[in-house]
């Protein structure tokens, strides 16, 4: 971490007890400009990260509506765990998480692998652009379009009817059986975007010699892909999996815009949306904080597990 040290002030020698304070004060005094330079960052971090974090955890034990704060102990948590709606929300989130993990490991990888295996040239560049470009369309706009797509007279039903599959039409966002899957299906075929970009960059950085060697050995394209390329991009895949996990753990834009958690109490409700609604609709900041805190603990736990795994992998290697 401190490999390159360019010190204006000399590193402070490890002094013995009595001298220590004096050296420290001297060190701070001599480096005052450094502290001034990092001060703004710390001010903002305290105001918008440390304080809110502490405040959120504290207030999850209170009834809190801005006008008054009343300590109520674990009541918010109890309410959350007693409420069948909250359980359904976590179940929905799990469904979304698992589906998104499957998605992130398949279609963007397929798209990237196909593009990577084109001969370099204008066509390859064109396809790359084609699948990178949609990244600029704000996710909210995508969700919005898909909401219309799923409507009674929307695009999906129109296409189905045109194909003579009128029997398959649904009010996709208005039926309990389809609403959650419709939200997961948003963005089909999920090729374009960030995941594609990262897979493609990883695949293109694989040295050509490795693949040529395999080709000489007579390995088929499929074997080459699964035995050579896939293991080589495992790291990027891990990163994407973690990113997907963290993103969908807290993301609730799609259910918010498409269904507001409906149909019904828990059709597409996720904990993040429950928190948002507690705040926006009910001004119940305490309950919102409790949901936020649970989400925080879960995310933190997953991150730590991820850290442990990656560290073990590193030490194995």
């Amino acid at each position: 971490m401190m490999s390159q040290e360019l010190t204006i002030a000399k590193p402070i020698p490890r002094a013995k007890s009595s001298q220590r304070v004096a050296t420290l004060v001297e060190g701070v005094r001599r480096n005052w400009l450094l502290y001034v330079l990092i001060l703004p960052t710390f001010l903002f971090s305290i105001a918008f990260y440390y304080y809110p974090m502490a405040s959120g955890i504290y207030h999850s034990f209170t009834y809190w509506d801005i006008k008054r704060t009343i300590w109520i102990g674990f009541e918010n948590y109890q309410r959350m765990f007693d409420d069948p709606v909250a359980l359904a929300a976590w179940r929905n989130m799990l469904t979304i998480l698992v589906s998104q993990l499957v998605i992130v490991m398949t279609t963007p990888l397929l798209g990237a692998a196909l593009v990577a295996h084109l001969r370099p040239g204008l066509a390859q560049y064109g396809w790359r652009m084609m699948f990178v470009m949609p990244i600029v369309v704000p996710a909210t706009v995508v969700v919005f379009v898909w909401r219309w797509f799923y409507g009674g007279d929307g695009g999906l039903n129109t296409i189905l009817r045109a194909l003579g599959l009128g029997a398959l039409t649904h009010l996709w966002l208005g039926e309990n059986a389809t609403a959650l899957w419709a939200i997961i299906g948003t963005g089909f075929p999920w090729v374009a975007g960030l995941n594609f970009l990262i897979y493609l960059a990883a695949l293109q950085s694989i040295p050509e010699e490795l693949l040529d060697a395999a080709r000489v050995d007579g390995a088929s394209a499929f074997r080459r892909f699964f035995q050579i390329e896939l293991p080589l991009i495992r790291n990027q895949m891990m990163v994407l999996i973690v990113l997907t996990f963290i993103f969908y753990l807290r993301s609730f834009d799609a259910p918010l815009i498409m269904t507001n958690g409906g149909p019904g109490m828990a059709g597409t409700l996720v904990p993040g949306l429950q928190m948002y609604r507690a705040v926006r609709d009910d001004l119940d900041l305490g309950y919102g904080s409790a949901i936020g805190t649970v989400l925080f603990v879960v995310t933190l736990g997953l991150m730590l597990i991820n850290q442990l795994i990656s560290r073990r992998q590193k030490s194995d290697a």
Binding site: N176, N260, G261, P263, G264, M265, G267, D282
Partner: peptide, 30 residues
């Protein structure tokens, strides 16, 4: 008006058959 959203959602579940009358009434009482 905001609290009404939750009431409407209970009705939605009952009307769509996702909840029985008893379940809906329990949710309503809650």
């Amino acid at each position: 008006q905001a609290s009404t959203t939750n009431e409407t959602k209970i009705f939605q579940d009952y009307l769509s058959g996702a909840m029985t009358l008893d379940q809906a009434l329990t949710a309503y009482q809650r």
